[in-house]
Amino acid sequence: MRNTEHLEENLDESTDVSIFAAGALCWRVKKRKLEVLLIHRQRYDDWSWPKGKLDKGETLAECAVREVFEEVGLPITLGIPLPSIRYAVKPGMKQVHYWASSVDDLPPMPDGKEVDVAIWCSPNKARGLLSNPSDLEPLEALTAAHEAGTLETWPLLIIRHAKAKPRSAWTLAEGERPLAATGKRQALYLQRLLMSWHPGRINTSGWMRCISTISPYAQATKAKVKLVPWLTEADHKRNPAKVAATIEKLLTRTNATAVCTHRPVLPTILATLAEHMSPAMGATLPLTDPHLSPGEVLIAHVSIAEPGRIVALEQHKPYED
């Protein structure tokens, strides 16, 4: 059996890449057969995946969702990350990041500006139509995941709270320490980023800096927020097993969920997640302190066919002033 587990890195900011773009391989299963969505662009007379360049200040995930909606009219939620591709263009090297995205049976609707045709087709037909040979790599990863039963997943998002005011500058109760100005901007950035996975539930520490981190997203989406005492620094220190049990319970579900907590709690969460993935994937977890930066997100994609099994990981860096 082919190995379909995928590890996604943060945005590659290497100097040889001059253009960043993002898109998605939309997929569905009709009569037990996998179909993917291809678009034809009249300007270039080519067949490709829905994709486009990042707008200023936009995250890769936001870009992928936006481009699919603008080009074919499909609102999507991102699934497992797929291999990114690079190829040369006139301004230099272009890097395109892709995700898989399961969609309903809605017919694609080309925008008529850039895209004149959008079709559902088999992976084999897509291989024959794709104009850029590089676009075959994410397709092969998607079909391999389908064959292995790891394409259909739900996301568990682990969030370290945004940047807070320094402990040394705070004299009141630790649970009331608020976000710094940068942290407030990180929380707004997270609001936009999380929209790409639409977690409908948020389990969070009840301390102020965690609540403030997830509040913009929760208010914008009406996501259900649950205060979990064990996710605070103090309660975790007294009984880390409660945190492990919380994560274990979440992994038995199938709905997109976010967890917001503190740096000292992360080792317990990461150790629990590691038990649900291959050793090779576990070795890629951010196991060294600080594990995640303030406002950073780790996403574990959990198999629906095999409840509790994590089949892909990705990390998203926080907003930085």
Rank of each mutant, 00 (worst) to 15 (best):
T153G: 11
Y319W: 11
S131R: 01
I304S: 02
E58R: 04
V228Q: 14
V243D: 13
R160E: 10
Y319I: 00
G92A: 08
M1V: 08
V68M: 01
V115F: 06
E314R: 00
D135A: 13
R238A: 14
Q95Y: 12
A173P: 04
E114M: 07
V96Y: 06
T261E: 10
T171R: 12
A256V: 03
T252D: 13
Y87G: 03
P199R: 05
L11V: 12
S134I: 08
R160D: 08
S14T: 12
T221G: 13
A164W: 11
S215A: 14
K226L: 09
L130V: 05
S278F: 09
P240M: 10
L74K: 05
L156V: 07
L38Y: 09
F69H: 12
Y87E: 04
R2S: 07
H97P: 00
A187P: 06
L273W: 05
A283D: 15
H146W: 15
I39M: 09
T272G: 07
W99R: 00
R167N: 13
W47E: 00
R177K: 03
E152R: 07
D45N: 15
A244N: 13
A173Y: 14
A241V: 14
A145I: 01
L34P: 05
P229N: 11
H236Y: 07
V72L: 11
E320L: 15
A283M: 15
S102Q: 15
A223E: 10
N124R: 08
I247Q: 07
M1R: 01
R263F: 11
L38S: 08
H276G: 10
T143D: 00
Y87K: 00
E114A: 06
W49E: 01
P267M: 04
A141G: 03
L157M: 14
E62N: 05
A312S: 15
W49F: 08
A218D: 11
A164N: 12
